[in-house]
Design a protein around this nucleic acid. Structure first.
Length: 420
RNA sequence: GUGCAACCUAAUGGUGCA
């Protein structure tokens, strides 16, 4: 039975699910009974592939066979639900654990806390931490890191700092991730210089800034237009024993593109390749956006070919960038072609892609087509957001169709979308 | 004494703005 579990685990790790289930079904014939562990391995793998419903039916199946889920099993389920943004269900499983007389572990709580943080619901995450403390479960470094990151993403770096102090008081050791999150939070709130001071604080705690730290700082300098400082920090990396990675190059390339310096961006792209740093899809997307905004669609298409030759998969963002570029030149047919290619390659358009098209239809006065897209979005389960409605409303007002504009405002409210 | 759980941090795309 142990042998089976090890093998099944190995197959699942390589996402060879079919084979894993085949082995699983052979167990009985071999006089082996699957245990909670066997089921948990499979349930975890199913959740990891987004097959949550199958995971739940496996849970039912194990119960039928008289095998009860343990804390590990429940934790896997909570994690899976969180990854699908099904937070209420995740929290109800946490309750179920206690009802069944089991005790949730730190990992169980952390899974839920991370889920809430990733959804921007930091306050709910925070109350889970309070709940775990009152249940006698001590938050660990990871718990604090998730919350600190959550507060930073919610532009509440002050609350994050408060948590840093709390963890120090409680004797929980911050690590690089803790500080890197804080540095990012401070940068995003415009306090770049304070962020640099955090490096000293790290030093005094025996932590040495890493690539993540520097990429955060370099990106912040870039976005603030402080390119000279960004480059001098970039050039200092070698002396610190750090090798610039694709994230750092992408930050620089993006900034150069946005400043209209496509030539510099392209030479950075060449440079990174020559020093053995492989561009990834973000890098290419940054370049493509630069070219696209300058209406250099020919160049953009050849960069996209290069991307594919290198085996870098184009994603929704890549396609949206190209579609947007085509539409800005009025090339609706080409834009539609890219759309179709994207869909047939199994990549689904998202809110951004739809909104891009809606804007184009508004600009040429085809409000009915724009409205059709909204209907299609609902059908596809892609929810129009504030920007989508703003685009539509803006299109109406430009054409003097004030009543139409109010009509869409009403649609917006009906869809429980907040006007800004 | 061997097998199950949270991959916690950085870079890329859509509207409008005097």
């Amino acid at each position: 039975e142990v042998t089976y579990n090890v093998l099944i685990h190995g197959l699942c790790e390589r996402s060879r699910m079919e084979e894993a289930f085949e082995l699983f079904s052979k167990m009985d014939g071999d006089d082996c009974t699957p245990t909670v562990r066997t089921y948990t391995i499979l349930i975890s793998a199913l959740c990891g592939e987004g097959r949550t419903e199958e995971a739940f039916s496996l849970v039912d199946k194990m119960r039928e066979k008289g095998c009860l889920p343990n804390v590990h099993t429940y934790t896997v389920l909570i994690d899976g639900l969180c990854k699908e943004s099904r937070l209420e269900e995740a929290e109800s499983i946490l309750k179920e654990i206690s009802v069944k007389g089991l005790v949730p572990s730190v990992i169980t709580y952390n899974a839920l806390i991370d889920g809430y943080c990733k959804k921007g619901k930091v306050d709910s995450a925070f109350s889970i931490m309070q709940m775990m403390e009152s249940n006698g479960c001590q938050p660990n470094t990871r718990t604090y890191n998730e919350l600190i990151c959550g507060f930073c993403k919610a532009t509440k770096a002050h609350r994050a700092m408060g948590l840093l102090n709390k963890m120090l008081e409680n004797g929980i050791t911050p690590n690089l991730i803790t500080y890197n999150s804080l540095i990012d939070g401070m940068c995003k709130e415009g306090h770049i210089d304070n962020a640099f001071r955090m490096i000293d604080l790290m030093d005094s705690n025996g932590l040495v800034a890493d690539v993540w730290t520097y990429s955060t700082l370099i990106d912040a300098l870039c976005k603030d237009g402080r390119m000279e400082e960004a480059y001098s920090l970039f050039n200092s990396l070698g002396g610190r024993g750090i090798k610039a990675n694709e994230v750092i190059y992408t930050a620089l390339i993006d900034a150069e593109c946005k400043a209209g310096h496509i030539g510099i961006a392209c030479s950075l792209l060449e440079k990174m390749v020559s020093v053995g740093c492989e561009p990834n899809f973000c890098t290419y997307n940054a370049v493509l956006d630069g070219l696209s905004k300058e209406s250099k669609m020919q160049d953009a298409l050849s960069v996209m070919n290069e991307m594919e030759e290198k085996g870098v998969q184009a994603d929704v963002i890549t396609n949206t960038i190209l579609i947007s570029g085509m539409l800005k030149k009025g090339l609706i047919v080409d834009a539609k072609m890219i759309w179709d290619q994207m869909v047939s390659s199994g990549c689904k358009p998202d809110v951004f892609t739809y909104t891009t098209f809606i804007r184009a239809y508004c600009n040429i006065g085809k409000l009915d087509d724009a409205e059709k897209l909204i209907t299609e979005m609902h059908k596809e389960g892609v929810h129009p957001d504030t920007v989508t409605y703003n685009t539509l409303i803006g299109g109406c007002t430009k054409m003097g169709l004030i009543d139409q504009a109010f009509h869409f405002l009403k649609c917006m409210m009906d869809a429980k979308c907040k006007p800004d």
